[in-house]
């Protein structure tokens, strides 16, 4: 197992954003994480990556307890993530942004080697032509790719992708999915939060569903898509439920 969550709970004052969630992810798999807006998906990522401290529960990454780790410790151990709301380092170039990932991530490279890795990764995600512009000047699709590139440059074991497809047009979605497949082929495990159903259902080996912070279903994409509880709780409306089944 690359990642195991045991009874993870996160409360903000009276609000329980993540409620007693447990699951585990075998190495090399892609796990789809779905659920309506406000279900607690991003909060769960923040709990795993050390951005939030847990109210209770345990996070085991690669046989190591990272429950109380700071984000940079988790990064050094091989955990990388993207942000749903992109966070480019605006006044640095695209190359410098990606170099930060390589410099301070799992492999802890010096500048020269990190820059070489950055060039390689930028080519992989298709940002090589934008390498020397300031990250702040990229468009949304490119910023999403930059998030991905920085995370990959760290050479992680586990990659957390938070809605990397949102806001992309159809061909951009197809390209990004292709990139995600290639990442999996490198042996990197992935958890992806996604709203575009056909994408999650196609790409994931396994899917889990959050609703009001609780894990209400898990299984293969097919099983989850047909689970009446998911259809009801997650989509709330019959038409959307039909659409889910069609996809």
């Amino acid at each position: 197992m690359i990642l195991e969550l045991k009874n993870v709970t996160k409360q903000f004052g009276g609000l329980t954003a993540v409620d007693n969630v447990s699951f585990s992810l075998p190495k090399g798999q892609i796990l789809g994480l779905i659920g309506p807006n406000g279900a607690g998906k991003t909060t769960l990522f923040n709990c795993i990556s050390g951005v939030y401290s847990l109210t209770s529960g345990q996070v085991i990454f690669n046989q190591q307890d990272i429950t109380d780790c700071k984000p940079y410790h988790a990064a050094h151990l091989g955990l990388a993530r993207t942000h749903q709301i992109v966070r480019p380092l605006n006044e640095l170039t695209v190359r410098e942004n990606v170099t930060v990932g390589a410099c301070f991530g799992r492999e802890d490279h010096g500048l020269v080697e990190a820059t070489r890795i950055a060039d390689e990764i930028m080519e992989f995600v298709g940002l090589e032509e934008r390498a020397d512009v300031l990250a702040g000047s990229l468009n949304v699709a490119q910023k999403k790719r930059l998030e991905m590139a920085r995370a990959l440059a760290a050479r992680p074991y586990l990659l957390l992708l938070d809605e990397v497809l949102a806001g992309l047009n159809l061909s951009e979605v197809a390209e990004m999915l292709d990139t995600i497949y290639q990442i999996q082929e490198k042996g990197i495990s992935i958890i992806m939060i996604e709203h575009i159903m056909h994408a999650v259902m196609n790409v994931s080996d396994h899917v889990i569903v959050l609703n009001y912070g609780e894990l209400i279903a898990e299984g293969t994409p097919e099983a989850v898509a047909e689970n009446p509880q998911v259809i009801e709780a997650y989509l709330g409306s019959p038409e959307l439920a039909d659409k889910l089944l069609e996809d």
Binding site: S49, V51, K70, P71, Y72, A75, H76, A80, R81, H83, R87, P88, L89, N90, E91, L92, E96, T99, V100, G101, C103, F104, G105, R106, D108, G110, L111, A114, R150, A154
Partner: peptide, 25 residues
Amino acid sequence: RSKFGLGLMAIREDEDAAEVMGVVA
């Protein structure tokens, strides 16, 4: 021009994002 400096500039631009990338802020 150093790795240390790159880390500092990452902190300047977005400290939380820098920490997520492994910079020990």
